[in-house]
Design a protein around this nucleic acid. Structure first.
Lengths: 208, 208
DNA sequence: TGTACATCAGTGAACGCGCGTTCACTGATGTAC
DNA sequence: TGTACATCAGTGAACGCGCGTTCACTGATGTAC
């Protein structure tokens, strides 16, 4: 099932749905080469269009990357929320489920995960980007605060946010980045899997 | 006092000590533009030499960056160890002191911190790089395990490493990266300072 | 002490490369009448 | 239904750019005798 475009739904002209094709090509390119290896020309090549075509839909490279990041935040939020719901009502179980979902998302989509925090490559003025970023954080914060998924949307980091939310975020974020940067390679076979369980088991449950 | 070059001490010919000058120029360039903004030509420009000069001392760009990363790990280890010693013998105090030192290093030297974990830009075959990276981890692990600073050098991540070391590392590493990526900007004024204390206070002490 | 020579740090021009973006354009699609 | 026209997605060549690295070289330094 094709996802609907978040803003003005582009009609199919020559290509069919170039906007969508460019986003998907970006996702696979990011997966293969990371944010550092991303180029607009390569994306165009993979989508089978000329290097000038993307400008029509996204303005420039930053615009395309921002669209990809927005979608990535949406997927992260969906995964966090699904894990939360599946974990039941126990606060620690919810927290652990979300922590595991966060790390698994990062490991499954390393390129997109890198992009989401590569602020220099994104359009910081984009309101939708902020909205989706805040939504992902809100999902985590909800479990930390023991609020139900049904109790409204929550909001992004603020001065009122309980510190535990930052603790949980830092922990899973740091674990994910270290794992992606290969820092656990010497910690034995299946180190990431084993450590993930231990870290979440030892730490996340105690923190809050 | 000029630091002595880690390998074959380069004599002063035309420049004086180009090897050292290139490393220092790299450090300030990294500070200004991050790893993404690093170029060999710009470093040469800043050191006042031709673009071909660095090759003589470091082979290629990767070689120079690796030398810079090695030095950065040395500085991190020195900071962690100093904080550890200053914290006395209480295990939680030591852990907290090292955690704070880790984050402060990252905030003070964002470009070098980014470089240390930008594995794609470094020479993964370089033994000294691994040695210094392991040494930094070993400092952290020592406090987690409650071993004294005097009890030998320790070693890098392995299958025998207590999980708490990975927990502590993930926590401070994640906090540092999120802070550097501007993710705490909306958490109020002085958010990073306040959160740093809260995160270390709430979490690090409980984890082990 | 003086001279001839070897070493090698650093030069500067050139290499080929791929990049993001621009621009005038083409031609398929959709629409007004 | 048919025709003329407007729209605009996508083309492809060209722009200027800065990059890392190479190469034959220069000339200061150090050294052997």
């Amino acid at each position: 099932m094709p996802r609907s475009a978040p803003e003005s739904s582009t009609r199919a002209y020559h290509h069919g749905d170039l906007r969508e094709a460019l986003i998907e090509a970006s996702e696979t390119l990011l997966a293969e080469r990371g944010v550092e290896g991303f180029t607009l020309r390569e994306v165009a090549r993979r989508a089978g269009v000329s290097p000038a075509a993307p400008a029509h839909h996204f303005g420039d490279a930053r615009g395309l990357l921002t669209a990809v990041a927005i979608r990535a935040f949406e997927e992260l939020t969906a995964r966090l929320t699904a894990a939360d719901v599946a974990a039941g009502s126990d606060r620690r179980a919810r927290l652990r489920a979300q922590g595991e979902a966060y790390v698994r998302f990062a490991l499954a989509r390393p390129g997109q995960f890198g992009l989401m925090f590569a602020v220099g490559r994104l359009d910081g003025e984009n309101a939708e980007l902020h909205r989706q970023g805040d939504a992902a954080f809100a999902a985590l914060e909800r479990a930390v605060s023991g609020r139900s998924v049904d109790e409204g949307p929550g909001c992004g980091p603020s001065a009122d946010t309980p510190p535990g939310a930052f603790v949980a975020w830092s922990l899973v974020h740091g674990f994910a980045r270290l794992a992606l940067d290969g820092q656990f390679h010497n910690a034995g076979p299946d180190a990431v899997e084993i450590l993930l369980r231990e870290v979440l088991g030892q730490a996340l449950e105690r923190i809050v």
